[in-house]
């Protein structure tokens, strides 16, 4: 390999090393430390100046105490479990809404498609936080939705959506919809319409042709979309803390509280390490899905 090529390849690796691996190792190190009322709020700290004995001393002070604690206090397991449930259910709802969106755009007249896609992406141009606050303005007790429904007389008392799990679902679906729509659209748009006709020709009704051709062939897009929604939703913190109630339990929120309210960095780091391990499984699955898709398109 020439030097130039080696140099070129080393750029992304250096990037990953500096911005992923090193921070991760730091977090891992902190998660193995103990809480201390100092700055930084953990111990031990590595004293390189003391040479070999300093490193040895540092090493012997690390332990898995925090991880053990995570398994002992039911709060954490519950929080992980509840996050998984909320993320999975929210992903399902996003799929339920996103698929028809993608299907509609893919079947719209050619000249409309770019504008329709633009409409899907447009909200990204506004800050995420502002969008969440805008959502609060819509779904809160005296928000637009309730005002409108009461005005047309559909309800007499405002619907309580804010500070419930429902608000969290609405928030996740609303925020992550484009991540679902875009990959599904990409697979549907490539779909050869003669495949649908061939299916009908071979005895399918319109609906069964849709099922056995369109749905089947959009699977890679659906899987990619689901992971792209599920992975960030699992660690989501802003949505549950702004829209969810006190009983909405999500690991992202727990993490934040450990860090900033309790200042227990080591425990918070342990929570983060476990979260990362949990996420590695879907990330690997997502990559395998993409690999498969590439092979099929060859």
């Amino acid at each position: 390999m020439s030097l130039a090529r080696r140099l070129l390849i080393s750029v992304p690796y250096t990037w990953l090393l500096a911005l992923f691996l090193v921070p991760f190792l730091i977090v891992l190190k902190i998660s193995l430390s103990d809480y201390a009322n100092s700055i930084p709020p953990y111990t031990p700290t590595l004293e390189v100046g003391e040479g070999w004995s300093g490193i040895k001393e540092f090493w012997s002070a690390l332990d898995f105490e925090n991880f053990v604690f995570l398994t002992e206090d039911a709060l954490y397991i519950k929080a992980y479990w509840s996050s998984l449930k909320i993320a999975a259910l929210a992903t399902f709802f996003t799929l339920l809404i996103g698929f028809p969106f993608a299907y509609g755009i893919a079947n719209a007249p050619q000249e409309w498609r770019p504008s329709l896609l633009m409409l899907i992406i447009l909200p990204f141009w506004t800050s995420f936080l502002i969008r969440i606050y805008a959502l609060i303005g819509i779904i809160s007790n005296d928000g637009f939705l309730n005002q409108f429904l009461m005005w047309i007389g559909a309800i007499s008392d405002p619907l309580v959506i804010m500070n419930t799990n429902l608000a969290v679902y609405i928030g996740i679906v609303y925020t992550y919809l484009p991540f679902m729509v875009l990959p599904i659209y990409a697979t549907l748009e490539k779909l050869d319409s003669s495949l649908l006709e061939a299916a009908q020709d071979l005895g399918c009704t319109r609906i069964s042709a849709f099922w056995s051709v369109t749905v089947h062939l959009s699977k890679p897009g659906v899987i990619a979309g689901c992971f792209l929604v599920f992975i960030p939703a699992l660690g989501e913190f802003v949505i549950p803390s702004l829209l969810g109630g006190s009983r909405t339990l999500m690991i992202g929120k727990v993490l934040w509280e450990e860090f900033f309210s309790n200042r227990d960095w080591p425990l918070a780091s342990a929570v983060a390490v476990i979260l990362l391990l949990v996420l590695i499984i879907p990330i690997v699955l997502l990559q395998r899905n993409e690999q498969m898709q590439r092979e099929q398109n060859k």
């Binding site: 050869d192 003669s194 495949l195 006709e197 061939a198 299916a199 009908q200 020709d201 071979l202 005895g203 399918c204 009704t205 319109r206 051709v213 089947h216 062939l217 699977k219 099929q296």
Partner: peptide
């Protein structure tokens, strides 16, 4: 509709189902 006709069509683009094997395509 097409599925109720004793007619089959061989498409210009072949329209083989890419996710199915040859045998599965024939069995479809």
């Amino acid at each position: 509709p097409p599925n109720k006709r004793a007619v089959n069509m061989m498409f210009q683009s072949y329209a083989l189902f890419p996710h199915l094997t040859v045998a599965q395509n024939l069995a479809f």
